[in-house]
Nucleic acid binder design. Structure first.
Lengths: 253, 253
DNA sequence: TAAGATTTGTTCGTATGTATC
DNA sequence: GGATACATACGAACAAATCTT
């Protein structure tokens, strides 16, 4: 099977990359589920008719994407894994490292998605989840005194949104919101996007989060939506006004 | 639902995966840009103090993610690449293969994002872009006669949205919309989501696209938004009503 | 056209690490 | 502890691609 010139052949992918795709296909065809065992190295060499080194490079590609996990020892081998949200966020961040995303871009999306999420979660959360969100919202009862504290509070506020996104029944909606929270967190950590401290905006943001938890608890979808909309407008004002910063990162896993 | 989360859960990364991360870090620290050359294999072996095989596995990982490209021959070597939108979509599709996404989930997002995109594009497109969209909208002037034609028209309609998303100034918004169009296209191709043919809905959808191009041409943002909102409502009715289908795919590159 | 130089691509033999019995 | 089964890592040799002359 060495048809080196297929008409549908794309750019040039190296052999290991192509073998990795073949393995993926092999797994899909057999409908293997998470935890199912893949053939061991020797069998892979036979099945795909390549050398050990090539098989290993292909397996590392799949491992890096979270599609397989490998254990050594007896009963070891490679198994179908599960791509975690964190890994997917990292891979996606690689793409946006090359794009020029502005804070305005992110807030254009947050302004429509965050209220949508808030609305859809009203009355759907457990007591434990609501309590956890409330605890996140109630952190930092005092205004920040230093730039360091300001940064910490901003990151903390974003973690409220990140946690909320994990509760989403809509996994796509949750993922996109969580991804944006991650980008903003990175920016906050690596740049000075948290200054100057604006006490009034901070106080309103904190108030919004607490009111939101209350609305979610009461199952008031429309109120949850409108509180989040206000919150986003405030957050946008706090960030965009400060800096129309472009972003470039390579990512960190 | 989602019980406990292990935030820093990365227990066993293999050596090549760690080396790949080190290389990424190495590149970031030096702020290498697209096209810049990385050290050759021999130098990599020295720098990271691992064998040739390990270096190659690490490079293959980066290549599979689109972060580097490699050429043989004199003047060859590895260079910083660019992650394409298509590759990012594929990587992300790997993640959602393990999630249970419903059509309702996707349309919850399309209903808010597509109108947002339409609105933001009003008056911003070139003549050539508008003409291209119009050509896409004007395809298939006749109602489908067979299931095969119906499928083809549906895919064609989605390509209108995919193309529109590529024109977005907001790369994140464009990416998410393009990703959803891709998922829906895959579903249409692999399953029978396009039946039964509903002539009236098809006619209205086609009409919407043509009116949308007109609104974009005239720079009428609010009309573009409302046309797209109607279009999404119609599309949702056409798809969700047919099948509350769950989706599982492993991907295809 | 051809030869030579340069760099990655592929394979294999061997040794080491690790988990299970 | 020892045997076993498996992945992991290394190094050397050779093949293939591609540029220059």
């Amino acid at each position: 099977m060495d048809g080196s010139s297929k008409p549908t052949d794309q750019p040039k992918r190296s052999r290991p990359v192509r073998v990795a795709e073949e393995i993926k296909q092999w797994v899909v065809e057999r409908d293997l589920k998470q935890g199912d065992k893949l053939p061991n190295e020797a069998q892979m060499i036979e099945i795909f008719a390549v050398s050990k080194g090539t098989v290993r490079e292909a397996m590392r590609i799949l491992e890096a994407q979270g599609l397989i996990v490998t254990r050594t020892g007896p009963g070891g081998g490679s198994f179908v894994g599960q791509v975690t949200a964190e890994r997917a966020r990292s891979l996606l961040a690689n793409y946006f490292y090359f794009q020029d995303l502005s804070l305005g871009d992110i807030y254009q999306m947050r302004k429509v998605l965050e209220p949508e999420l808030a609305s859809s979660l009203a009355g759907k959360l457990s007591e434990a989840q609501l309590d956890e969100l409330q605890a996140l919202a109630e952190r930092h009862p005092e205004p920040a005194r230093t730039a360091e504290e300001e940064k910490e509070q901003h990151v903390s506020s974003l973690s409220f949104h990140a946690r909320l996104s994990e509760f989403a029944g809509n996994r796509l909606l949750g993922f996109v919101i969580g991804f944006m929270a991650r980008i903003l967190t990175d920016l906050t950590v690596y740049r000075r996007l948290y200054e100057p401290p604006n006490f009034e905006l901070w106080r309103r943001g904190r108030q919004h989060q607490m009111e939101l938890v209350q609305a979610l608890r009461e199952g008031d979808a429309e109120r949850a939506r409108s509180i989040m909309a206000s919150h986003m407008a405030g957050a946008e004002a706090m960030m965009v006004a400060q800096e129309a910063q472009l972003m470039r990162r390579f990512m960190a896993e």
